[in-house]
Design a protein around this nucleic acid. Sequence first.
DNA 1: TAATGTGATGGAACCGGTTCCACCAAGACA
DNA 2: TGTCTTGGTGGAACCGGTTCCATCACATTA
Lengths: 339, 339
Amino acid sequence: MTTMRDVAKEAGVGLGTVSRVLNESPLVSDVTRQRVLRVIKELNYVPNQLARRLSLGKTLTVAAVLPFFTRPAFSERLNGVASALARTHYDLLIHNIDTPELRRNFFENLLPHEVADGMLVLSLPLFDEEAEYLLRQVDIPLVLIDSSHPRMEGEVHQLSVDDVAGGRLATQHLLDLGHTRVGFVGDLVDNPFNFKSSRERYQGYCEALEAAGIPQRAAYYAAGQHGRRQARTLAKEMLAVEERPTAIFAASDTQAVGVLEAARSLNLRVPEDLSVVGYDDIELADIMRLTTVRQMLFEAGQRSVEILLKALKDPQMAIVHEELSLELVVRESTAKPGG
Amino acid sequence: MTTMRDVAKEAGVGLGTVSRVLNESPLVSDVTRQRVLRVIKELNYVPNQLARRLSLGKTLTVAAVLPFFTRPAFSERLNGVASALARTHYDLLIHNIDTPELRRNFFENLLPHEVADGMLVLSLPLFDEEAEYLLRQVDIPLVLIDSSHPRMEGEVHQLSVDDVAGGRLATQHLLDLGHTRVGFVGDLVDNPFNFKSSRERYQGYCEALEAAGIPQRAAYYAAGQHGRRQARTLAKEMLAVEERPTAIFAASDTQAVGVLEAARSLNLRVPEDLSVVGYDDIELADIMRLTTVRQMLFEAGQRSVEILLKALKDPQMAIVHEELSLELVVRESTAKPGG
DNA sequence: TAATGTGATGGAACCGGTTCCACCAAGACA
DNA sequence: TGTCTTGGTGGAACCGGTTCCATCACATTA
């Protein structure tokens, strides 16, 4: 492997001069520059990135931390990130967190500045210690996407989602159609990943019911591990009660599909016998003709990179906190009670 | 930032000793080790990865190159890769290639050894120049997954898929059920990404028909850009012909779902009026109760990492070439003609 | 007692870039 | 002619680890 010193010797110049040529410094005479460039070509010299990084103290890499990156809602955000980054000279390093151990390990052992110049935290609602860790230990620009925590308010860049509003939006749609017996299927409130979007969407659901003067019923609430099958089981039970709900709001499209399957297995027609609303608007929602709440997943990923790049250029940059927009997408899984 | 030298000074030992403690060399007395460890904790010292990498001449990173990593079939493989890698101390660097420009750029400008210790190429059938490039320029261990090329035979590690056999498997299933009018919906033969799985699955389809003595019909073949909507359009046309097929084999589950949608829009019942077979067995296939050919996507990702890690440990290792297994999964989208 | 072996240790040299300071020659100016 | 600039240049020092060799204390063996 040829190094800068080889080039310097061969060209009969000093180390600094070669470096200056490579970094396009104006402080090199044209003759010298040409000679150095010729030798570089002759020797097939390519600078060693590792050394460059050590010396500069930069990694030229952006790290993305996120759980379960194969879940469509998460991977779509990641896709936006990758797409925006592809246009730059930054590499993308991925930390997929899908067990509590990996998560702990990540927050205890990683010193991000050695591995990345900037970091994106996606869909990972933070525990208190994690928020503290990020604030205290992480000295590189940071953007949180859908991973808020009270402590981070005004401290780091954020793109946040108002899940309460989303829950209200979905539920209100069902109420507007005339439903009064509305069920909810979501994630466990206590889960090892601290996911709270389901909880907040549920809160929006409660607020909408309350505003409409409709009392909640315990039998209309079901929570389990995230997943289609689990949602199907829960929905089956819920639809077996005496006075079954005529509509169900599921905390994600994946779970909504579970609800659709439950309905099918009970010979309930959708939307005539049961209306179903999901959340996220992943491709599956379109396939299943599911009414849902659309999040701008891909765009959020892109936007987060924009912010990060700006922060990398200008470390003094003012903290950005943007709210991502939501939109109700009405398809064929919802209708008036009875069709 | 505290460095190794700080630790050495504070603990009253030499540089080498600190390094030995960190690397768990047995050549340190217990007393010294304890003292060094205590100082490390006191000073909150964490080794600088960049320096470590430069000094070792390693990047401690594995690069994965793949197209469209949000497509379920691709992301599931990637998931296997990430999961296997999470148990090691290697980082995962992702190069998502979703335009021909990015692809060209990748193969022209990247010098992999500076950015990764090993490289995985997933689902990226190589062009001739690319194969040459990989052979000539890439000096780190390499594993190709579903990305074969004649030139690479016996030269680099490979996990390959026999798409011809898969196509035969799917088609034979339909023939066994008694279908004689079997259509095919797949990708364009000429596509900028050189994807050829669709082409090969089609070849398997042809072979199965031929073996059964059934002539092919031009009206039963349709190809378009990959995607659900495109497949739906193609299938609608195919199902509108005089003597429409009673079964369709689609080159992927995504396309098969497009076929299902086409059937629905034409009021054809599945499987009574039309049998449909997909390919890949992504989650969607289960949701849609689709008969399909299962590839071990996640396992392939994991396996490729295993091979790569072994190759990293032992550069002399013999070239591995494994064939991934296939399996027909029969669900509810196929039946005898007429049900 | 002397020779030999062994485990533990310190630290210089190295990885391959960047940065910064010292220096020089040549032109400007008094 | 002497002094001051200044563009161009060389190379030491540095980034923070790892590696390897020299050294030393102490135990073992002849």
